[in-house]
Design a protein around this nucleic acid. Structure first.
Lengths: 347, 347
DNA sequence: TTGAAAGCGATACCAG
DNA sequence: CTGGTATCGCTTTCAA
């Protein structure tokens, strides 16, 4: 399929014509009449060496003329390291909270001259995923803690200066940012007990992947009621109206006087169903959500919620940078998840 | 900073001990007692050459023993191309619709053995961003159409076999997937006019970046009312209760009998404010959202909405793959955005 | 101030 | 069937 190229117009526009190979630094050097070394010096502003101003200009002009773009792979091969920060893309559809966090983080890392790569680890788990990730030779990895010591080791040996886990557990050898969702449940539970509630339902979303968060939240509620005489009941719920409708009679029969609804969206779903069935909120049954979404403020009664504070993207980016620069640095782990009840009208 | 390594335990676990360089194929070759070439053949299952079974085993064992992981940069340098599909990370916090779409796409591309890279193009626009992207030599680029012919050309010359824009416009030289949000406004407008509404407000979020979507939606409503005698009014709204509260008297004074609220979340915000002020929905003022979120179904009255259908991730992934394989293929552009009103109780 | 050349890690040709 | 070896594009000593 040969294409006859139209006579070239005045400007160097070739449109979709020539699949000519990308220009290399050698091409630039040739056009500028200098050596490849000089091109490299000029384009990287190497301070260890002085290049005359005329030469600099010639190189820059040649580069622009050819539309030269350096080859990242070649560069990092030579350099022996990359500026890639790798994160597996979340396996569960992420909520607005995580999204804001991720955007923040990405923005902050870009400012520090890192390239964020979201790796879609389809059907790879733990150490297998780690091996796939290691092919990119990332300088840092941010991952959930479903990673064995071996996986961490593979990453480390492949050049990762920072392996950071975000989640409830820690992984051997990695820097753990503990984010234990039990704290969320604990806050909600303590709040409800304080308000005199004694029969507390806890929503467990049936959606796949959410139980990583839901279980700890449930456990947190259990922690909170310990020794108070209050009881905890598990309430499986799928995110649709039908499931919510089925749950209501169960709640009534159990005589629950409070529900911690996993998050604000499930809370809204459940509140609607309860109200449609004539259950008084909060008189008969209190409802508490989590995530402090705007929508909670718009409900009537206004939804009480647990506000979760993740580390800011900037903080985390700074940590990554620190770990990258100081290899032997802290492997200690902080607890990064703060939870605080915002009491409104539904409890 | 020399580290004395502890005597190695029975297993090869070194934990966080040795920052030894990553093993290369040469190391594997040495340990297996073969040449680097042979290692490459074995590990890539090269069919053009037969390697004896004992040799294969030795190579595999050596690789596992050393924890060998191939170096992606070296490979793609040699190969002359990558399997990277590059997308700039969205500049506005993405909604659930986009997120679902993105997850889908990523999943589908992973299945086709592509690596998705989200590039945080902080403060780089258009052709400058394109130059930065080109450094990674992506085989495909998916981007909003804020990209000049020059940017496309740079990407093409750097090896991108598919440059696909997603958005309302087209970019010279790129394969355009037109997604014109006017269609959303048009659906909503037509629906409201049909129901006899004549004074239609259109919410314009003041949030930065959202007017890329809001403007076309407004224009769409204008299209729809053309020649019907209905009037359109712009309603700037910030996503908080205060702003919504201020908007209500304006709506009343203007005597609006309908509002297209940009999307379901803004619709919910506005509905709440209207109801708190005693405005009857839909009797006095109809409200229509967009995106068909679950929460719309939970409102009372149930929220009418415009359901938007993006191309599925699978479809788009398939398109990418087709374009990558058949370089001279279609540069024609489809219109990929479908919008359909879901009439419920609020209109 | 500039140029020549080594080498990063993996692959594919061509001999043996 | 297996082993040298040139090569991809770039950076960085070392010489001139």
């Amino acid at each position: 399929m040969v294409q006859i190229s139209k006579p070239q117009s005045a400007r160097t526009s070739r449109e979709s014509a020539a699949p000519s190979p990308a220009p290399t630094s050698a091409d630039v050097a040739r056009l500028a009449g200098v050596s490849r070394a000089t091109v490299s010096y000029v384009l990287n502003n190497t301070s260890a060496v002085r290049i005359s101003e005329p030469t600099r200009r010639r190189v820059h002009e040649a580069a622009k003329e050819l539309g030269y773009v350096p080859h990242a792979a070649a560069r990092s091969l030579r350099a022996g390291h990359t500026r890639i920060v790798l994160m597996p893309s979340p396996s569960v559809p992420a909520g607005p909270l995580y999204n804001a966090f991720f955007n923040d983080l990405q923005w902050a890392l870009s400012r520090l001259d890192y390239t964020v790569v979201q790796y879609g680890s389809v059907s790879l788990r733990g150490d297998d995923a780690a091996r796939a990730w290691a092919e990119l030779r990332p300088v840092a990895v941010l991952t959930p803690p479903d990673l064995g010591a071996e996986g961490v080791e593979v990453l480390r040996r492949s050049g990762a200066r920072a392996v950071i886990t975000l989640g409830p557990e820690r992984a051997e050898g990695a820097h753990a940012l503990l984010m234990d969702h039990r704290e969320v449940g604990r806050s909600a539970g303590a709040h409800l007990v304080e308000r005199g509630r004694r029969r507390i339902g806890v929503v467990l979303p049936t959606e796949h992947g959410l139980d990583h968060f839901a279980r700890p939240r449930l456990d947190g509620v259990r922690d909170a009621v310990l020794g108070t005489g209050a009881e905890v009941f598990e309430l499986p719920l799928t995110y649709d109206e039908e499931s919510a409708g089925q749950l209501v009679p169960e709640i009534v029969e159990l005589g629950l006087d409070a529900v911690f609804a996993y998050n604000d969206e499930y809370a809204m779903l459940l509140m609607r169903a309860l109200q449609d069935a004539g259950v008084g909120i909060p008189e008969e049954t209190a409802v508490v959500g989590a995530d402090d979404l705007m929508l909670g403020r718009l409900l009537r009664p206004r939804l009480s919620t647990v506000r979760i504070e993740l580390p800011s993207g900037q903080e985390l980016a700074a940590l990554v940078d620190r770990l990258v620069r100081a290899p032997g640095a802290v492997t200690e782990s902080h607890d990064m998840l703060r939870a605080r009840v915002v009491a409104r009208e539904s409890s």
